[in-house]
Write a protein that binds this DNA or RNA. Structure first.
Lengths: 191, 191
DNA sequence: CCCATAGGATGATTGTTGTCATCCTATGGA
DNA sequence: TCCATAGGATGACAACAATCATCCTATGGG
């Protein structure tokens, strides 16, 4: 290889990261290949030296996005006092900060319905990501047995996703915070 | 007027209804004006005899969609035994039937993130719809005072929206039902 | 029975986007 | 120093969509 072996890989990673951000901000349909390449400081044509097509980029950036918040929330839990892990996750997820920055946040909250419309094959891939996500966070959830924790994960996660999504539709920060707080209080009292 | 006064209104309503369906199935960006007109048995050009632009159609069809499930859920509650109203709503919303038919379902679950990306003006309109929706359903919610019922509405609604959205991403009906059931059990035990 | 009118159809225009063939150029081995 | 190569740039293409000017035709009042 003429260029350092790392070079192409580094560029590829940068494109994926920029796409992971843009996709959450503008949706999968709303994200143009050209825009992502511009983010990465490149032009649209070179795109196909890195990806077979747009779908491949979307798949990789989804994976990147799931990895990002999965790790971020796991870290929040690690910094929490013992027994408070899941509460720390709820507070972080239901923060105004997360609500107002979909581009760095949970891809389910940012892209749910679009993922729901994907074809069977894409859904299988999404499933794998969701399971990876769940496996990362379920241990921090309330409950004794593994199965209890997994059920708790889905109950809590459902509430968090819905609350953030509803809040994001609202025009004022005060209203958003009110919805978030309602969900926070509800969850923190429920387990 | 040459044609019966009702004629244009009837066609207009049909277009809006077809759009309300298509928008929930394919998203707002994903819905083409031409496709909606074909649904209505017309061609794309005549569209602008009925709407100033696509945005006006989207606004009207959103309103239609909110009206549809608002009424539908209110009716479900009316058929329930006294005191069981909110439980009936939860069961209907978290049914596999609703999950598998986004095109007739709740627009928040079907379009949440897209609505979140709308401009301030559109969000104000969405807010009005959400409030209309809340006012219709809050009286059926658990709690003594009006404020309690409204908080309960947002807590329950958050969980329902999130659960349906997560379920819709999953590839098999069995997995979808599992997520729905987890949320159902969680909510029915929580109030 | 005729014709002014408004709803609807046709077709063009403009802008956007995904994709690809082709060209350019920096690189580092010989 | 020179050149084969691969990453990236340019520009073209086809699809598709929103919008609109213009045309067509069924209607029902005169």
């Amino acid at each position: 290889m003429r260029y350092q072996a790392e070079h192409k890989i580094a560029i590829h990673q940068k494109i994926v990261k920029d796409a992971a951000r843009r996709v959450r901000a503008e949706g999968m349909t709303g994200t143009a290949v050209g825009a992502v390449m511009r983010d990465a400081g490149l032009t649209h044509g070179g795109f196909y030296k890195h990806f077979r097509n747009k779908d491949e980029l979307l798949t990789e950036s989804l994976s990147e996005a799931f990895g990002q918040i999965g790790d971020s929330l796991a870290q929040v839990a690690r910094r929490a006092k013992p027994g408070m892990e899941w509460k720390a996750i709820v507070k972080a997820y239901l923060s105004l900060e997360h609500c107002d920055h979909a581009e760095w946040g949970c891809p389910v909250a940012a892209l749910g319905p679009e993922l729901a419309r994907a074809n069977q094959q894409s859904k299988e891939r999404v499933l794998a990501e969701v399971m990876r996500y769940r496996n990362k966070l379920a241990p921090m959830m309330p409950g004794r047995r593994r199965a209890d924790k997994e059920r708790a994960f889905f109950a809590i996660y459902s509430t968090m996703v819905g609350a953030v999504e509803i809040a994001r539709m609202l025009p004022s920060p005060a209203m958003r915070e009110k919805v978030l707080k309602t969900a926070r209080d509800f969850l923190l009292r429920s387990f």
